[in-house]
Nucleic acid binder design. Structure first.
Lengths: 131, 131
DNA sequence: TTGAAAATGTTATATTATAACACTGTTACA
DNA sequence: TGTAACAGTGTTATAATATAACATTTTCAA
């Protein structure tokens, strides 16, 4: 079963709270510096919380940036179909929530014999402001 | 203009040669270790070659693995539309060459105002052998 | 109430990537 | 023909990202 927020551990809550307030992708060490006042002193504490939050879909990792962002899809319980829009100008990252896109990709098959169960898509470009 | 292979510099050729022979994604430091006999002694030499090779589309970076693989699409000159299939079992990575998929994604638009000019897609699952 | 699983705290270290600077070779073109 | 611009090289050092390993504590269902 998917874990609910109230089941999160202390460190997991602290890390998730901070990421959710940020509204933008955060680096692990930036999270670490900012939660040190809450008692998380060393990298493994942050990385462990992040690993778990990613696993349960509360947080996504933006692979091209090594950064972590809260999931905007409130009922997202598992992170097996993610798509992001990344502005090369202002670095703004937005989670794409597009049913047609996710349906298309979730149903994607080719003749390689691979059985796909997860994907991550990152689009790059320029947003309105940066054009 | 896209750079042709014969225009590659010495270090770029050495690194590309090694990646092409591998037929699988390689880590930067594994490349470094293996090209030391060819005279590339320090990380920046490898990373600079990789940066350039990625820029001109000869090499792609598998972001979820921090690894580099030769482009299989022989006429690929710029790396703005990439899709990979990654087996979670044996770690085999294959570049997906599917015109319908690339057409769909290259033409993707949403109402965010973003103008997309590049994407990277990574599919995960299990290959025939690993199922 | 106890024991297995999950989480925590901690130190150290591994892995990935870039900064900075001096130098070399090539090319264009005034 | 000299010189400026530029891409590439070599090198040392260090920054940034992530995990190993191990001891301890908490949780919670059997």
């Amino acid at each position: 079963m998917a874990q609910k927020q109230e089941n999160l551990s202390k460190n997991q809550k602290i890390v998730l709270d901070f990421i959710e307030k940020a509204n933008q992708p955060l680096k692990a060490y930036s999270i670490l510096f900012n939660v040190q006042k809450k008692g998380l002193k060393a990298p493994p504490q942050v990385y462990r919380a992040l690993d778990r939050l990613v696993e349960i879909g509360k947080v996504h990792k933006i692979e091209s940036k090594n950064a972590f962002v809260a999931c905007k899809n409130s009922n997202c319980t598992i992170s097996n179909a993610t798509a992001f829009s990344i502005c090369d100008g202002c670095e703004k990252v937005t989670e794409i929530s597009n049913p047609k896109l996710s349906k298309y990709l979730s149903g994607f098959q080719d003749n390689s014999g691979m059985k796909y169960n997860k994907y991550n898509l990152e689009f790059f470009g320029l947003c309105k402001k940066c054009r």
